[in-house]
Design a protein around this nucleic acid. Structure first.
Lengths: 203, 203, 203, 203
DNA sequence: GATGAATGAGTTTTCATTCAT
DNA sequence: AATGAATGAAAACTCATTCAT
């Protein structure tokens, strides 16, 4: 049970299966993918998958968990005091935009799509990722406000608006907006300007 | 074929079916809903649906078309000159936030979820809704910039960022963020402030 | 719904399916038989079966219902007064022994086997067939007792013992007892003697 | 191979497995029970079972063999001369009725059910249990007939009828007849009366 | 145009059995 | 001898779609 070698083998096999599932899901989508597709991609038998995952939905959940872990691992925000405010905000928006790029995008689309429709997935996402991430961001911004660097009437709502902007941009990207993909690399700077200074011209 | 009475009957029957489909989709989701579910809800036979729609996906497309029409019909932007800049921006963000609320939300989630995964739906959405809407918004903002009221280095990207914020907020809402739903009515003002002035405290 | 022609068509199709199921069950047994086997035998598609029966078990239940109806239809006991006691008892034992012979035996074995193991089937059998049959037999015997023709200390238990004897003989037959099948036709007389007079030699 | 210690170990392990199988079979039935269920119950690995039994059916056969041995071991009929005829018949019917009660009943139902459907099991049952038991009973009865105590025109058929009555009663019991289970303890006497004297009232 | 019975391809999931360790 | 992960065949069941009436 607690044999560490066994544990490692089980984890390795689980990862092997999730790797395969991620590839096929990203390629064909969740519903069109069959268990057989995944088994073939992983080079194992159909039944083996069921030794490690209860059913097909749990595979998506497994992929989601791994995304969660890798995202949380990356979340190394700079200490707010050490950088100037602009660099801080820029880091804040850039991380998700570049972190979830390329290969991950196809998969992100699949997972998000299913998440909007699958209660269990949605609950887990909100509780395990979104809520804690929002809380962390909120405390960061609040610290900046307390230091007088930022002026934010409602920190909670503002944090949600900013993260929504990032999420929405990733969705618009997946929807095929060519202008967006062409200028993707300019986003961090443009967003930072927008967030910090707005678009009003007071002159 | 071009008999106007026939046309009206066909349109009425199509709407009857789409009404039924919208109800059931909103309740159960797209994939879990069967043609029989929809036929029962509409009070007609399974086969009748196929006299009006090619297949199940086309039902989603039909619903989507109706959403498009109602959204476009609502898009009555104020003439930019007639209102001050703040009221203009506020109207810009408020319309989708209040328009797509309540009953529509469940359906919006289903349609968006499938759209992220269905190429045809996605293409149609981008070409028929997102692209024209972005273009209109872009021209509006550009006019304000030209009048010196707004300062926007990259109008295209900024329009996308703002609309992404709105889309993202609707998604976060569907994901079950309670803070967001509690303060939903404050969003138009908060967003307008954020968009116009940003969060930087220059003092 | 209540269209009599529809009703007849549905009944006919149900019987077609049950006929096929009875043949294949009798040949291969319940568990080894697949839905496809039955569909092929009936000359219809697999899915059609599910338009008429909820699942495989319901087919067995349907067969069972038809056996029930045909058995009840045959249960035309002679009026107890019109025949002498011996003829009455003989008719009592002969009917099931000859009624459930030949073709039916293979099917009887399958149904009984599954009935001993399937709660729903067992409950239905007891309530719809065994209990009423026992009640009828009990009242018949009681009438004979009241007329002084028979001497039965416990009518309920005796009725059960006699019917058990018949059931047991059918099972022993299915178990392959060659002596029994060779002398099957003598059973009604032998059983009548045994039941009426017992085996004690008082001389 | 013939190492007596080895033999004992093998026998012990076989019994351990059969004990587990009997428990789970009695609880869930034969088909619904998985090898894993049995292995868990026995506290061993799935594969170990296959070191001792060829396949799942052989487990049922193994259980059956043990039942056979215990039944034959119990079959200690009184010497016919030593008891009066009534006591003899009573002992004859009582033994199976009380022997196969309580715990054994659930298992008996499973085994009998499968026996009616499984050729190998059925053949073994007939040849190894039913035929010898009938033969013994037949010789006992024949002895009584020869001594003039009993009057039986056809001993073979009568023996089958009596044993069928016992078997049938056990089945009716398993089918859930409440009157039967309530009066189960009176059965030996009632049956003895019925068998010896019948129900005819010659007065 | 409406009906709804018939179709049958397609998929998930189970589980007896094997065999390398 | 014991293990239990891997296997993959097998089967029930669903449901979008068709088409004769």
């Amino acid at each position: 049970m607690t044999d560490p070698i066994q544990q490692a083998l089980i984890a390795a096999r689980k990862n092997q299966i999730l790797d395969a599932a991620a590839i096929v899901f990203a390629e064909k989508g969740f519903h069109p993918t069959t268990i057989r597709d995944i088994a073939r991609q992983a080079g194992i038998a159909d039944g083996t998958i069921y030794n490690y995952f209860e059913n097909k939905s749990m595979l998506l959940l497994g992929i989601f968990e791994r995304m969660r872990e890798s995202i949380l691992a990356e979340q190394t925000m700079p200490a707010p005091d050490e950088v100037d405010t602009r660099a801080f905000v820029r880091a804040f928006v850039q991380q998700p935009l570049t972190g979830l790029r390329e290969d991950n995008f196809a998969l992100f689309r699949i997972v998000l799509s299913e998440m909007m429709v699958n209660d269990e997935l949605r609950t887990r996402y909100y509780e395990q990722i979104m809520a804690p991430t929002l809380a962390i961001a909120e405390s960061y911004l609040q610290a900046q406000v307390d230091q007088g660097r930022l002026h934010i009437p409602d920190v909670g709502l503002t944090v949600r608006a900013i993260s929504a902007m990032i999420l929405g941009l990733m969705i618009e990207y997946t929807l095929g907006d060519s202008a967006l993909s062409a200028q993707w690399d300019q986003l961090p700077d443009t967003l930072t300007d927008l967030i910090l200074n707005g678009i009003y011209n007071p002159s």
